[in-house]
């Protein structure tokens, strides 16, 4: 008999998925109870979420970073590709431990070393990555032909779109340029820039709302279809 399968007596074989689905239903309803008012059931679910989320981060970090990068190279070298102990990982481990000096006022300056290391790595990575992934591709995509040809004929619609893109990007950049007073032609361009920004923010907002609605539909489908299927499966 499969877990959760109905038996002749109408009783169910309690299993991980069945209990889990019951827990998921209760927690889903507990969160939605907030729509009526803030209440103890919602607060319980909220605090549970905080605790489990934090533990999720710790567990993932332990298995993805601590285990393969510190414990295996130092104490279980047979699990590493080289098979040899790698004692130099003690250096970043010590740097990491220096973070905890923040708890001691006298030695809190030591926490600057690991922070400086992280900032240096991040800044060094950011420059080429930003140029490669943000700056150049977006500049290239903005500088498109204003009179493109398609199959030997002028593609007017694409040309208008390309012109709009160019005007929009330039105007938005002008809006963010504060070294010159936004007056005259510069002011008009800045105003047009605001309009393009508003369209972008509006589209972003619309997308966010739809993403939340999709999640809501997902939860309602879970309660409406998945739950009855697990608790009241069709008779064989």
């Amino acid at each position: 008999m499969e877990p959760g399968e109905a038996v002749a007596t109408g009783m169910y074989y309690l299993s991980g998925p069945v209990i889990g689905t019951g827990v998921a239903v209760l927690l889903t309803l507990a969160i939605y109870s907030f729509l009526y008012a803030d209440n103890p059931v919602y607060k319980f679910a909220e605090h549970l979420f905080v605790g489990v989320s934090a533990a999720y981060g710790v567990a993932i970090t332990y298995h993805m970073a601590v285990l393969p990068l510190i414990i295996d190279p130092l104490f279980r070298p047979q699990n590493t590709p080289s098979g040899q102990p790698q004692y130099w990982v003690i250096i970043p481990a010590l740097l990491g431990l220096m973070m905890f000096s923040r708890f001691f006022r006298r030695y809190d300056w030591m926490s600057r070393w690991p922070i400086a290391f992280m900032m240096g790595i991040g800044a060094g990575l950011a420059i080429p990555a930003t140029v490669q992934t943000s700056l150049l591709p977006h500049l290239y995509s903005t500088m498109q032909p204003l009179a493109p040809m398609a199959e030997g004929r002028l593609d007017l619609l694409t040309g208008i779109d390309n012109l709009l893109l160019l005007v929009g990007v330039v105007c938005v950049l002008i809006y963010f340029y504060f070294s010159l007073e936004h007056k005259g032609v510069f002011g008009v361009a800045s105003r047009v820039g605001i309009w393009f920004l508003m369209i972008a923010f509006g589209a972003g907002f619309g997308n966010t709302v739809m993403a939340r609605i999709s999640l809501l539909i997902g939860r309602v489908q879970f309660l409406r279809f998945d739950v009855p299927e697990i608790f009241f499966p069709p008779s064989p």
Partner: peptide, 11 residues
């Protein structure tokens, strides 16, 4: 990898 190790302690 060093940054990931230091990041684990930061977490």
């Amino acid at each position: 990898n060093w940054a990931r190790i230091v990041g684990a302690f930061a977490l």
